[in-house]
């Protein structure tokens, strides 16, 4: 009875002790990614001495086994360890972007324009985040309607030639289209996070602070409306360039939000944002044709 109780503890100890060394983690990853590995292969990739590898193989004896063909394979526990490493590296990597040691001044600049606390904090406790999110959604809808812009995720197109003469009903419809796109962007982000990386966590939290992603878009809509009222046609090109920059800023916020709340590496979150953005572009292109 006593030995039964000790057995899982012993395995757990071995499990965590195996993961406690960088070389052992690398060895698990090599086998996990390739299915198996030879001793020579370990030596070549790790660049360490034969003795060191033998020592680590000894520590990994519950997680790795050697077949008759001399190749090393993962045991069931080893497979769990590899999965554990593979999944948790994302969580660890996802926090990297919040660290102060980001070398590039460009990224530091972008991060200074990112409401990190609002994305990271719990919106249930932070009523201000929810109020700001809802305000952004409503104000965005109003300005999209007033400017006569038809929304497609983060893209906008003039729905009529003279938007300022648009009747209130059409303005209301355009406002509703903006709100629908707001929810569509959230749904697509959730869908692709699950489809690509099987991440379901913090959906409600993301939903509550989702309006923050539309902050750059709201700024663009306000500027667009001002240019429209002032009838500055020659500044249309400025409007286009502004749209590009505010789109990229919004994409960055979406990426950051997914990364910190779904524990996805920043690169992976960027893939989701890209797929959504260029998917919307293709849809808009086809509709325009």
């Amino acid at each position: 009875m006593d030995s039964e109780r000790k057995e899982p503890n012993h395995k757990e100890e071995n499990f965590y002790s195996a993961l406690s060394h960088e070389i052992r983690r690398k060895m698990l990853k090599i086998i996990g990614e390739q299915g198996y590995s030879s001793f020579t292969n370990f030596k070549k990739i790790l660049g360490t001495s034969t003795g060191t590898i033998y020592h680590h193989l000894e520590v990994l004896k519950d997680l790795i086994f050697q077949e008759k063909n001399k190749k090393y394979y993962l045991t069931i526990l080893g497979g769990h360890a590899y999965k554990f490493l593979d999944q948790n590296i994302d969580s660890i990597e996802s926090t990297k972007i919040t660290e102060k040691d980001i070398k590039s001044p460009f990224l530091r600049g972008i991060l200074s324009f990112t409401p990190k606390k609002m994305f990271l904090g719990n919106p249930r406790e932070n009523i201000l985040t929810i109020v700001i999110s809802i305000s952004i959604m409503i104000t965005g809808a109003i300005f999209a309607g007033l400017s006569g812009l038809s929304t497609c995720i983060l893209f906008f197109q003039d729905s009529v030639e003279f938007p300022l003469l648009l009747d209130p009903f059409s303005q209301l419809v355009l406002g509703l289209i903006f709100v629908l796109n707001y929810f569509a962007l959230f749904a697509l982000a959730e869908f692709f996070s699950y489809l690509f990386y099987e991440k379901k966590e913090n959906s409600f939290k993301i939903f509550l602070n989702f309006g923050l992603i539309y902050l750059p878009i709201l700024i663009y809509l306000v500027i667009h409306y001002i240019l429209l009222i002032l009838n500055l046609n020659y500044l249309k090109i400025l409007d286009n360039i502004l749209l590009i920059f505010f789109q990229i800023w919004a994409l960055w916020l979406l990426t950051y939000n997914l990364s910190v709340n779904k524990y996805i590496k920043i690169e992976r979150a960027l893939i989701i944002s890209l797929v959504i953005h260029y998917g919307a572009f293709i849809v808009l292109f086809i509709i325009s044709l």
Binding site: K103, L107, F155, Q157, I244, F245, L251, E267, L270
Partner: peptide, 22 residues
């Protein structure tokens, strides 16, 4: 090491292309 920066720069570039196409 500046991978994310280069991607963001390229996204800005592609943004011009998308606007041009549309």
């Amino acid at each position: 090491d500046l991978k994310i920066n280069s991607i963001i720069i390229q996204l800005i570039g592609l943004g011009f292309n998308t606007i041009f196409i549309l």
